[in-house]
Design a protein around this nucleic acid. Structure first.
Lengths: 306, 306
DNA sequence: CGTAGTTACGGAGATCGTAAACATC
DNA sequence: GATGTTTACGATCTCCGTAACTACG
């Protein structure tokens, strides 16, 4: 049995059972792959691909099980390489972070600045996406860690570590009637057109929940993927914005005013997600600890093995 | 990276860092192994073995981590082969059970009879040992499942599934004074010389506990590894025996009498132990279910993934 | 000087790519 | 006939075993 064979099988499965496509991705010839798959089938004594004549149409039942184990082995092979790289030079490598716009734009900059000064040899990569995409990226190994809020699907493969709590604020144009309210209420907010996050994002569901619990149906005139877009349209006078407090910067956002809305909505929790069973490089632990000081190496390792 | 290289490294570690010995065990040449280890070190970019001149004296720090991952990969490779074998013919294969004498002699016979009638193609193997050895056998892959009582060391690698509860009885020669007692007490038992299980076995510690809680120091004149030995010496009049109730068979043991002692000692629990992450063949689930009907395939799989 | 590990080298065997045949749509 | 898979075959490379060499006790 060869690791190469498992890699071939894995790639075929990943490419929707198209052997030629898999060959292309792996920069090798298509017949070579076919051959190795046959050898693997022969060695294990079972067919792993369902063939109709000369067309691959499915994965057999044993193939499903084999695929799961093969994936784990390939993952472990990656881990081995990382261990090597880590001990060669603790401070050289790359770190891929899958995250949402809000984190990338408001929460991460200071951490990334500190980190890249401390580890100048580490190539940082930010991948943006919605929570579903972020999870995908971590599970496929494309990204090392995920940073996002709530909506990250629960899954055994993924270890979630709570980092920060945050809440929302309402932003308006200067001179808006809401600014002179003594205490902000959901009822008053619901009177105005609202601009907020897109549904898949950043605890948008918590926002809806707060309104429905008060039997209010807010008039959401625009949803956006990020806070910058929200601010832009509030400036244009399309409505009031509801977004993460941390995304409002009084210095930069001189044309806007913010009102804290922490008492109106449940707080959201920003979390870090890691693919269970992945070997993390030393600086990855350092990065996480910079972002959330309570998550030291020991705590993280314990959570990953739990 | 080749699985072969990992296997070589694993075997070197297992053979106490003796490369020649590892070569012998693997039926290959010693230089071949040296070479492959060097290639592995080169590929990973770190030394994994500590060499003093031309002598291997230790495993480097990264080597330790690499070894752990390599072990898991090799284990997965075994799993793959099992998956294959399982689907080729669900009813042909082998099943190794590591267990204690008491289980092998009194609890298992009926199960094994039923099982071997149902799966005539499965080669059954019973490995006897004390609880420590049993655990070793399962962890090393020498045995597929362990069946024993209590003393099995708790370890993350091992999934323990409770099967049966059982208790003890006192056995004596016919006409013994204890037989005419209305209710058996620890105090009366302690008046006689006692023959019971060896310390490492079958919940012997529970027995000690019961006596010390009553401030009694029983006079244990002989300890044995199995119930048959205990019975033999009770017949000879060396003392009274304390052993598992299930090990007394009125038909067979006509020269002895048993008195239930369930009220004097905490019950012990017989458990099945499985190496977490091992792929179990279909008939293994069947065997376990025959032994403990409440442990169906679903329940077992859930416990293994927990 | 015996034991244990590395280097050197040659042969067997495997892997991979090209070319061609073949099956489905 | 287009797309995609398997078979055939030859060049290359890898792996393994023997033999010689080297270091340590």
């Amino acid at each position: 049995m060869k690791l190469q064979q498992l890699r071939y099988f894995y790639e075929i499965a990943k490419q929707g059972l198209n052997v030629s496509l898999a060959a292309e991705k792996l920069h090798t010839s298509q017949p070579g792959i076919s051959k190795q798959i046959q050898l693997l089938e022969e060695e294990l004594g079972v067919d792993i691909l369902v063939r109709h004549g000369k067309r691959v149409t499915g994965i057999t039942e044993p193939g499903q099980t084999i695929l799961l184990i093969a994936e784990r082995m390939l993952h472990d092979m990656e881990n081995l390489k990382r261990v090597g790289a880590d001990f060669v030079n603790e401070t050289v490598g790359s770190l891929s972070i899958a995250t949402t716009h809000t984190q990338a734009r408001y929460a991460l900059p200071s951490v990334i600045k500190t980190f890249s000064e401390r580890y100048p040899g580490v190539q940082l990569r930010l991948h943006q996406g919605n929570p579903t995409q972020i999870v995908e990226m971590v599970l496929s190994g494309e990204a090392d860690i995920a940073i996002a809020t709530e909506a990250i699907a629960l899954c055994d493969e993924l270890v979630m570590l709570p980092c920060h709590q945050w809440n929302r604020c309402v932003i308006t144009q200067p001179g808006h009637p809401l600014l002179s309210e003594r205490t902000l209420t959901l009822e008053r907010i619901a009177e105005y057109p609202i601009i907020t996050y897109d549904f898949a994002y950043s605890g948008r569901s918590l926002l809806n929940k707060a309104f429905t619990e008060h039997n209010l149906s807010p008039n959401v005139v625009l949803t956006a993927i990020d806070a910058d877009v929200i601010k832009t349209y509030v400036e244009l006078g399309l409505g009031i914005g509801i977004m993460a407090s941390q995304a409002f910067d009084p210095k930069r956002d001189r044309n806007l005013r913010a009102i804290d809305a922490g008492h109106l909505f449940e707080p959201s929790t920003t979390k870090i997600g890691i693919h269970r069973g992945t070997y993390l490089r030393g600086y990855t632990y350092a990065f996480i600890e910079m972002f959330a000081p309570h998550l030291d190496r020991n705590t993280i390792e314990k959570a990953m093995n739990a």
